[in-house]
């Protein structure tokens, strides 16, 4: 936690700088030949979607490590990544929906991509609820770690949904070096916003982890005081 406290400020500063550059590029990017200015929504939607998946991937890794090593720091990181991931997943769904209304003609469609992304949000919410519902923090940590690892089956489903099944959602625009479907001046804002969102996610994770850690310390102190009575 001391390490996290040290990197929080520099990380925050870097996030603000890159995010500022990203937003400048978003404003000055040309409109898309089909979508017009609505393409600017995707500069939030795509980075947020990447961060949703990345948060869950991180959660799966720390959950696995926690079950193996039983270090509390790993559980704190898991609790924090659930909160951060839920926020990004919500933004992904909401921004996609707002793009879909004028472009597709529908706020929502039950296609494979949208449905599996909704399941990811349900997973994040379920993990929060599960931790909340268990009194014993050790049991809560173990149970959420196990559920998080089981839920990881959703990740490949989300990622490959647009390739495996015919969906309303468009297929990925990047597929290695062979395919590059975003052309010209539309690309830089997407790349910079993606970097900005990764930094923002890291910053939020650091902040939330420190908050969770401090809360646990405080709660431990409170229990101790109640057990031993007041001085």
């Amino acid at each position: 936690m001391k390490f996290l406290a040290k990197i929080q400020w520099p990380l925050g500063l870097l996030t603000v700088l890159v995010l500022g550059a990203g937003l400048w590029l978003v404003i000055h990017a040309p409109a898309d030949y089909q979508q017009g200015d609505a393409v600017r929504i995707l500069y939030v939607h795509v980075p947020a979607a990447k961060m949703s998946l990345l948060s869950y991937l991180f959660l799966t890794v720390v959950s696995g490590l926690f079950l193996w090593r039983r270090t509390e720091t790993l559980d704190i990181l898991a609790e924090a990544s659930v909160a951060v991931g839920a926020a990004f997943t919500f933004i992904t769904l909401a921004s996609g929906s707002i793009w879909g209304k004028p472009m597709w003609g529908a706020w929502w469609a039950w296609d494979a991509r949208l449905t599996s992304m909704l399941v990811l949000l349900i997973l994040f919410m379920g993990l929060m609820a599960l931790r909340n519902a268990l009194d014993n923090p050790v049991k809560a940590a173990r149970a959420t770690a196990v559920l998080a690892i089981i839920g990881a089956v959703d990740l490949p489903i989300i990622h490959f949904s647009v390739v495996w099944w015919r969906t309303l959602h468009q297929p990925p625009s990047f597929a290695g070096a062979s395919k590059q479907a975003i052309t010209g001046d539309l690309l830089p804002p997407l790349l910079v916003m993606s970097v900005a969102f990764v930094l923002l996610g890291a910053y939020l994770l650091v902040l939330k982890s420190r908050e969770v850690s401090a809360r646990r310390q405080w709660e431990a102190l409170e229990t101790e005081r109640l057990e031993h009575g007041h001085e």
């Binding site: 200015d37 609505a38 929504i41 939030v44 939607h45 947020a48 933004i91 909401a94 921004s95 004028p102």
Partner: peptide, 13 residues
């Protein structure tokens, strides 16, 4: 075009 949709997304995020 779509100004309110775009602003809505950035404001929400």
């Amino acid at each position: 075009e779509y100004g309110e949709y775009v602003w809505g997304v950035y404001l929400l995020a």
